[in-house]
């Protein structure tokens, strides 16, 4: 483990068919980091997340999780350390919210006996933490988008992971739910030292909630640092091909972007 990273990508390349979609990415997460991964559509954010979570092996380079080579670890071992919240989840069968959060215990529960008392306690604790106890007996399929997102995060927390990876956790949500989910992530990060890496579409929200940002363009990291360092007018113009003016957020002082449309 170099420099105390708990999750580290070293020189990672990846291609689906021809042409690299991830090019020589090196990125390290330390325990307690909360990092936003930003970049335009097709820049490789989701792909990078899938590689970091071990779902797809890199074409070259390596991923290190707590000092071990991710490629050598079983899914069960990985799932005890990394939980992933997908952008969308198409749930089969009308499992209740409680049953679904319990699925997060899969990497811990013994195969034959199923849930033990300890597992049920964890499920109750994380549901309380997120504040969704009142949904416990509802079928997941009947929930609204915001409720679903909270349930999926809760299921991930039931894995008791060290690292939480999220793919666009706010993308289909109304702003109240966006704020709710991001506040929850920040609270988990601050209170429990949960390491968080999330891809983000909304740059202003990313600046508000993440200590560090990584800007990805065409599969390469073009900027990495605090929101002030990454969200610069030149970077945005080059990567997103959009004109913006960077202002300061009125209460928190983090960068806040205002879009400057072409003259009409």
């Amino acid at each position: 483990m170099s420099e105390g990273y708990i999750l580290e990508a070293r020189g990672v390349d990846f291609s689906y068919y021809d042409g690299l979609v991830i090019k020589g990415v090196s990125l390290g997460l330390k325990k307690g980091d909360i990092v936003g991964l930003i970049g335009p559509n097709g820049s490789g954010k989701t792909t990078l997340l899938r590689i970091l979570s071990g779902f797809m092996p890199p074409k070259s380079g390596s991923i290190c999780l707590s000092g071990r080579d991710l490629g050598q670890m079983s899914r069960r071992d990985i799932a005890r350390l990394i939980a992933v919240v997908p952008q969308e989840l198409e749930m089969l069968f009308s499992f209740s919210v409680w049953e679904m959060v319990m699925m997060g215990r899969t990497p811990h529960a013994p195969r034959l006996l199923g849930a033990r008392r300890g597992d049920r306690e964890v499920v109750e604790r994380v549901m309380e933490r997120v504040g969704i106890q009142y949904l416990a007996q509802r079928p997941f399929q009947e929930l609204s988008g915001g409720e679903r997102q909270k349930v999926i995060v809760t299921m991930a927390l039931a894995q008791e992971p060290d690292i939480l990876l999220l793919d666009e956790p706010t993308v289909h949500l109304d702003i109240n739910h966006q704020v709710e989910v991001l506040e929850l992530l920040r609270r988990l990060n601050r209170e429990s030292g949960l390491t968080v890496l999330a891809t983000m579409h909304d740059l202003n929200l990313a600046a508000l909630y993440f200590d560090n940002l990584v800007l990805l363009n065409e599969g390469e990291i073009v900027s990495h640092g605090t929101p002030e360092e990454v969200l610069q007018e030149a970077n945005i113009r080059r990567v997103f091909e959009a004109s913006v003016e960077i202002q300061k957020h009125p209460t928190l002082g983090v960068p806040h972007m205002v879009i400057l449309p072409p003259p009409r």
Partner: peptide
């Protein structure tokens, strides 16, 4: 029956089943 719990997890989809620890 040993894989009943894994069949539950597979209801989440293959990718998410992998993330909760099932070697899909």
């Amino acid at each position: 029956y040993l894989y009943a719990g894994d069949l539950n997890a597979l209801a989440l989809g293959e990718e998410q089943a992998a993330y909760v620890g099932v070697p899909v």
